[in-house]
Every structure is written in C-alpha cells, then in structure tokens.
Nucleic acid binder design. Structure first.
Lengths: 105, 105
DNA sequence: GTCTAGGTTCGATCGTTCTCGTACCTCCCC
DNA sequence: GGGGAGGTACGAGAACGATCGAACCTAGAC
C-alpha cells in the first residue's frame, strides 16, 4: 500500500440520501463542499483547505466525503487533489447541492 | 410533569443547518417528514405513523424532530398531534424541504 | 543522503445516537 | 372502578462518529 491510500469511489447510484445528508451535516465537511461548489469544475489541492483539525482527522473527512459520493479525489505525486462530483450529484440528487449552497451563501 | 411532556419548540432562528441535516439523515425521521410534507398544512396524529420501532424509540424521534425545528407538536387530550413547521422552514431554509421531498418522490 | 510537506494507519478516548424493555402516567370509554 | 391506548422516563447496550497523537510512508527539493 502506498502512502496515498487506494481512493475508492462509489458508483453514484449506490449512494443513498441518508449517507449524503450525514456527510453534509458536519460543518467541516460542508465547508469543504461549499468551497468546492464555488468553483465546481476546478480541482483543488486538499492541503490548501484551512481547517482547525488534525491531519489524521482530515484524512477521515476526506474518506467520508469520498464514500458519500460528494467528491472525487486523485493522487498526484505526493499529494491529493479533490473535486466536486458535480455532474453525478446533479443527476442523482438534483437541486441538493444548489439548495445547500444557497442556504449558506 | 404530565404524561405528555413539555413540548419545547426552538425558535427557528436558533436552529442551524447541521442540526436539520442530521435530523433528516435518519430514514425513519425523513419518512415522517416526507409524509407530513405531502399535506403540509394538516395536523396528524403521531400514533398514526407506522414505523417498525418501539414506542419509546418513537418518542425519541419526535423529540429530535421537534428540537431540530422541523415539526410542531401539540398535546390534545391524551395524544399528540404533529405538523410540519412549513412556514418557518420555508423562511429559514428556503428550498430545503422541497428539494428533499423531490428527491424521494 | 537529508529534510520537509502531504497523507495514511493505528489505537484510543469521548460523546452522541439509535435502539430496546420496563415501569409508569393519564385520558377516555365502558 | 377497570381497562386500554397513547406517551413519557429511565436505564442500559451497541454502534458510530469526531477527534487526537504517534509512528510511519513517499515524493520532491536541496
């Protein structure tokens, strides 16, 4: 196993609403999702997110976001890039992201 | 204290999004909310909800729904009536309920 | 080779949540 | 008065989630 873990992404059709809502219920994760949503097409380095939590806790949140189908992660060199699964989410949960984003705009 | 507990309802402005999303993340609670949302103006007897859980567990979920600002409960005689806080929710979290409802229609 | 920055894994703690059964209360009907 | 239906309170157990620190790995820069 490499230092960058196997980045397993679920099929969006296997994700259920409870999982997504649970993922979005955490303020740290929601902040990440909303920052990504401001520039949905753009990939961003995970390390650039400023969160008042430990490194290992971030790893935990990345996994939750990934496994809930909200984000796509890609290993580049030594680091991680993250991106919203915008199209998948629009198709599977239409309106959800826009609504949440509008609520905290 | 009467058999019907003190039904404390939070001011809708004191409710935050995390709490609401957490409340909606539970399938049983979401089912209740969605059934109420099909007839938003109408009060319904709590006892008429068919859920595969114990009585005391229901009491727990009523409290969560109440304290998350999603529903309003009223004691009538020996029982409880429940109703969506539709107007409050529309104002505080516009679009949220409609989006969730559309997602599981 | 060394050092650093980005990440993971592990183990643990702490709080919360869902769940239940039991006991109890109270309104209402007979 | 007695009984049933609707609900609460309490106590407990199991599962989960957020959090951390320490140890470790890897890629890249120097």
């Amino acid at each position: 196993m490499t230092a960058v873990a196997g980045l397993a992404h679920p099929d969006i059709d296997d994700v259920d609403l409870s999982t997504v809502l649970l993922a979005l219920a955490d303020p740290h994760r929601r902040q990440v999702v909303l920052e990504l949503a401001r520039d949905p097409k753009t990939e961003r380095q995970c390390a650039t997110f400023v969160l008042p939590i430990a490194k290992s806790t971030k790893t935990h949140h990345w996994r939750v976001l990934r496994e809930s189908g909200l984000v796509y992660q890609r290993a580049v060199g030594n680091g991680l890039y993250i991106r919203l699964r915008e199209d998948d989410l629009k198709r599977r949960f239409p309106g959800l992201l826009d609504t949440i984003a509008a609520l905290e705009a």
